[in-house]
Amino acid sequence: MRTTITVNGEARSLDLDTRTTLLDMLREHLKLTGAKKGCDHGQCGACTVLVNGARINSCLTLAVSHDGDEVVSIEGVGTVGRLHPVQQAFLAEDAFQCGYCTPGQICSTLGMLRELEAGVPSQETAPGAKPDFTGAEIRERMSGNICRCTAYPQIIAAIQRAAEEMA
């Protein structure tokens, strides 16, 4: 099925099997292997990408359903020569070990910061309150990204560092 998706700013037109997930389209068709397959069932967050600005699990969505959408994967966030402040902060705080969940963590961070800005609530936000930037709040909001090396404290430190730098 012919599908056109803007990936990292570039329109990509592909003839896809309807069964192909957005994740497999990125990894197997476009050779963008930054988004990872950790569980393939929305249970780990390693496949997190931004679709029209919102973070989602790319493993649980069909590529054909994203015709016309704008997708940003880790490859569109920054490159080795031009790291995004969040990528730089992950490096500086040693916020990863094996690195397999890292692209998902970084994409999720970008989506999370936008959600915070927009006032999207979490279970850490008291009803009616505007979410703040405490450790507990970020931890809850980043709980959809499992890190089995459990670099969790370092990830929080990296997010706080990046947010300061981007402010």
Binding site: G42, G45, E115, P121, Q123, P127, G144
Partner: peptide, 16 residues
């Protein structure tokens, strides 16, 4: 309702 929704899944799942 808001509290119940944010108790479910993850932000990524809830966005979708």
């Amino acid at each position: 309702l808001s509290e119940a929704i944010v108790a479910g899944g993850s932000p990524q799942l809830r966005n979708k």
